[in-house]
Amino acid sequence: MLLHGVAFAERGPVTNLPLPRYVSLKASEGNVRRGPSLTHRIDWVFKRRDMPLLITAEHGHWRRVEDRDGAGGWVHYTLLSGNRTVIVEKDMLDLRAKPNETAPVVANLELGVIANLVKCNETWCRLSADGYKGWVSREDLWGIANGENGN
């Protein structure tokens, strides 16, 4: 499987987990540094707990991450979680009771909402957001790779 031109068969030298891979921000704030150490300058701070991030490299206790806009840097691994989340990329996205275009709408999700990813099939993902659970088209999400099932 390819993501950003990188094969998922590649493994991280530290964790032996696939690279690239999606994770989420565990903390409510996370310093993003220019390089993989505390001596490197902080370029900015991520401020959205549970925000999905893409790990593209590993070095010791540091992970190189990118957000949905492609902005990236190095963060300490303790700021990251394996809990999967996604960002809604379409305003007022229908959250449906079943993975079907004709299923009843449970809620509408606003553009930029962060939701917990439960699982996916080829075209639909089951999400949990703000007490609501349901299915959305996977093409309207950021935080899951093509061919990945999310669990």
Results as ranks from 00 to 15, higher is better:
residue 105 V to N: 00
residue 60 G to F: 05
residue 116 N to E: 13
residue 63 R to T: 12
residue 107 A to K: 14
residue 115 A to L: 10
residue 79 L to P: 00
residue 62 W to M: 12
residue 81 S to N: 04
residue 113 V to K: 10
residue 120 C to P: 11
residue 91 D to Q: 04
residue 78 T to D: 03
residue 101 E to H: 06
residue 71 A to L: 12
residue 76 H to F: 13
residue 96 R to C: 03
residue 97 A to N: 09
residue 107 A to G: 01
residue 62 W to I: 14
residue 72 G to Y: 03
residue 95 L to H: 02
residue 90 K to F: 05
residue 92 M to H: 04
residue 109 L to I: 12
residue 90 K to P: 01
residue 90 K to T: 14
residue 113 V to F: 01
residue 118 V to S: 14
residue 66 E to K: 15
residue 112 G to R: 01
residue 97 A to M: 10
residue 77 Y to R: 15
residue 65 V to I: 15
residue 109 L to A: 00
residue 64 R to H: 13
residue 107 A to N: 05
residue 81 S to F: 10
residue 99 P to D: 03
residue 93 L to C: 00
residue 113 V to C: 00
residue 82 G to E: 11
residue 118 V to I: 11
residue 69 D to M: 15
residue 112 G to P: 08
residue 86 V to L: 02
residue 100 N to P: 00
residue 76 H to Q: 12
residue 88 V to D: 01
residue 87 I to P: 02
residue 62 W to F: 09
residue 75 V to I: 13
residue 111 L to A: 07
residue 102 T to W: 08
residue 85 T to E: 11
residue 80 L to P: 00
residue 87 I to F: 03
residue 82 G to R: 15
residue 96 R to I: 04
residue 88 V to Y: 00
residue 71 A to E: 08
residue 89 E to V: 08
residue 62 W to S: 11
residue 73 G to F: 08
residue 94 D to N: 09
residue 77 Y to G: 12
residue 76 H to P: 03
residue 112 G to A: 04
residue 118 V to N: 06
residue 88 V to T: 03
residue 61 H to S: 15
residue 117 L to W: 09
residue 79 L to N: 09
residue 62 W to C: 06
residue 83 N to H: 10
residue 77 Y to H: 15
residue 112 G to H: 06
residue 90 K to S: 03
residue 102 T to A: 13
residue 60 G to H: 14
residue 101 E to L: 08
residue 85 T to R: 08
residue 112 G to F: 01
residue 79 L to E: 13
residue 72 G to L: 12
residue 108 N to V: 08
residue 104 P to E: 01
residue 67 D to H: 06
residue 74 W to Y: 04
residue 117 L to H: 01
residue 89 E to D: 07
residue 66 E to F: 12
residue 71 A to Y: 12
residue 79 L to T: 13
residue 71 A to D: 12
residue 86 V to G: 04
residue 98 K to C: 04
residue 92 M to R: 12
residue 82 G to C: 14
residue 61 H to R: 15
residue 90 K to A: 07
residue 76 H to W: 08
residue 71 A to G: 07
residue 105 V to E: 05
residue 108 N to S: 10
residue 67 D to L: 10
residue 106 V to A: 08
residue 68 R to Q: 01
residue 98 K to F: 08
residue 80 L to M: 06
residue 72 G to K: 05
residue 114 I to M: 04
residue 65 V to A: 05
residue 74 W to L: 09
residue 110 E to K: 13
residue 70 G to R: 15
residue 85 T to V: 07
residue 94 D to V: 00
residue 118 V to D: 13
residue 67 D to Y: 13
residue 81 S to W: 02
residue 114 I to N: 06
residue 67 D to R: 02
residue 82 G to I: 14
residue 84 R to G: 06
residue 65 V to Q: 01
residue 68 R to N: 11
residue 111 L to H: 05
residue 91 D to H: 01
residue 102 T to R: 14
